[in-house]
Design a protein around this nucleic acid. Structure first.
Lengths: 253, 253
DNA sequence: CGCATACTTGAGCGAAATCAAGGCCTGTGG
DNA sequence: CCACAGGCCTTGATTTCGCTCAAGTATGCG
C-alpha cells in the first residue's frame, strides 16, 4: 500500500452516477471537474484528501479496526466482506471506480475491504471530513443519495440471499454486474444485445457474495453455458451474456 | 387508512437515536421537541407533514407504485418486504416508532409496507420534502446518519441470510429485535439480564425475514425453548430471552 | 361456540453442501 | 524458454440441512 503526496481532489474524486441517466464518470472525464462541486469546494476537499494506491489482493480496511478513514475508489475493483470467527465469509459488495466505502461505519469498521485489482483510492480522514461536510451541502446531498442507492442494492441482495435458487442468484449477479460495468463505461446500451463482462473476482468470491459454495457457482455457470445463455473466455474471468432477456427471466421469475 | 388534518410536526415526528448512547425518543417525550431541529425548523417541517393512522394488516406502501411519499413511524410496528411474482417474499426489515421509510426509493417503491399493529405515521410528500431539505441541514445530516445505520443493518442481515444456519438466524434475530426494543424504550440495559420481547409479527413473517420456512422457524424456536435459552408466552408472541450470552454465542460462532 | 388462521410436530425428499479427484491456468525459478 | 508448483476451477459421489407435504393442536375472532 503506497501513499502519495496529498493533491487537489479535482482530478481524483470520481462520482459515479448511481441512478441518473447520465454517466457521471464520463462527465468527469470530459469536463475534468467533479459533477456536484465547484472549484473552491473541490479545493477545500482536496486539502483533506490523500491519493493512494493498493496492490492486488491487499487489504485496506480490516473488520474491527477503528473507522478512521473513508475512501473513494478512483481506479480498479475491490471486495467488501464480513467474516465470522469460524471462517465463514459474506461478501457484501464489490467496489468500482466512483464508489465510496467507509462512510457507513460506527466506531469501528464492520467489514474488511480487499483490492481485486490494483486500486486507486482517494482517502479522507473521517473526523476532518465530518467537520468539512457542513460547508459542502451539495456533497452531503450526494452522499445521502448514494447511501440510499446502496440501501436499495442491499435490499435487492437480501431477496437474492433469502429467497432465490443457485441459478437465479447467478443470473441476478451477472445481470447486475454487467449493468454496473456498462453504466460506468459507456452509458446505457441496448439491454438485449450480448454484453461482454469482466469478472475480476474468483469463483469463491462470487460464492461468498451469493451465499453459495465454489462448487455450486461453478456448476451453475456450467449449466448457463450449456443452455447457451453465456459464453466464457479468458479462463472463466470474462463472460459474454448472450441472451439477457432469458437471463432476466431466470433471475426473477 | 385514515388521514387527519395536517398539524405541526412538533409532537409528531419521532427520531430514534440509531447509534448514540442517549435515547432520543425519551428526550422527545421529556423535552417535547425534536432532537435535531429548533422550533422554526419544526414549524417548517410541520407545514408539509400529514398525520395519519394505518390499521393492523393494512398496506401503506405497494411495491411498484410511484414513490410519492416518505414516512416517519410515530407509533406501532410495520414490516417491509419485497415480493417475487411467484409469491416468494423477503422481508427486508421491521419498522418501529422513530423509523423512517421511503427515503431510499428511486422513481417507484422497490418494496411494500404493511402495518403489524395499528400504526401512527407522519407522511411527507417526497418532492416538497426534497425542496425543503436544503433549508434543514441538521435534518439532512441526521438522515444521512440514519441511512448509514440502515446500511450497516442491511449488511449484517446479508451475513445472516448468506452464511448462517437456521438456529443462528433465529438467535441473531431475537437478540437484534430485543436490542431495538430496549433502545427504543428504556435506553441500555444489562446485556446479561433476561429480556422480555414482544413479537408482533407471525412465524411466517419471521421466516420471510430470515430466509426460512414457517416450519423451520417453529422448530428452531422449539429447540431454543427446549435448551432453556428462551421462554414463550402470550401464545408465542412474546418471548423471554433467558440467557443472552449463550444466545449470542449461538448467533455468531 | 364454531370457524379460520396460526402454530407445532412428524416423515420423506431434494437442492446445495461436503468430500474427493483431476485438469487447467499463472506465475516463478531454473 | 520451459518445467514445476500452487492456486483455481470443474466435475462426480455422497451427505445433510432445511423444504415440502401432511396431520394435529392452539388461538383468537365473530
Amino acid at each position: 500500500m503506497t501513499r502519495q503526496a496529498p493533491s487537489l481532489a479535482r482530478a481524483a474524486i470520481v462520482f459515479a452516477a448511481p441512478h441518473s441517466g447520465a454517466c457521471a464518470r464520463c462527465e468527469v472525464r470530459h469536463e475534468g471537474v467533479c459533477a456536484v462541486l465547484d472549484d473552491a469546494e473541490l479545493h477545500r476537499l482536496g486539502e483533506i484528501a490523500t491519493q493512494m494506491t493498493v496492490a492486488r489482493s491487499a487489504c485496506f480496511i480490516a473488520q474491527g479496526e477503528p473507522a478512521r478513514h473513508f475512501f473513494n475508489v478512483t481506479r480498479g475493483t475491490a471486495k467488501l466482506y464480513k467474516s465470522l470467527e469460524d471462517g465463514r465469509r459474506q461478501i457484501t459488495g464489490f467496489l468500482r471506480e466512483g464508489d465510496f466505502v467507509g462512510l457507513a461505519a460506527e466506531g469501528e469498521y464492520g467489514f474488511s475491504a480487499e483490492a481485486l485489482e490494483d486500486l486507486g483510492l482517494c482517502r479522507f480522514d473521517r473526523a476532518r471530513f465530518a467537520s468539512t461536510l457542513p460547508d459542502l451541502p451539495a456533497l452531503e446531498r450526494r452522499l445521502l443519495d448514494i447511501a440510499c442507492h446502496e440501501l436499495i442494492l442491499a435490499q435487492d441482495q437480501m431477496l437474492v440471499l433469502g429467497r432465490k435458487s443457485a441459478t437465479e442468484r447467478l443470473a441476478s449477479f451477472l445481470l447486475a454486474w454487467a449493468a454496473r460495468g456498462q453504466r460506468a463505461c459507456h452509458g446505457h446500451v441496448d439491454a438485449a444485445a450480448p454484453a461482454r463482462v469482466a469478472l475480476p473476482m474468483t469463483r469463491t468470491d462470487i460464492a461468498d457474495y451469493l451465499g453459495l459454495t465454489t462448487e455450486t457457482v461453478s456448476r451453475a455457470l456450467s449449466a448457463l453455458r450449456r443452455d447457451g445463455l453465456i459464453e466464457a473466455a479468458a479462463g472463466g474471468h470474462e463472460v459474454t451474456l448472450l441472451d439477457r432477456r432469458r437471463l432476466a427471466r431466470l433471475a426473477a421469475p
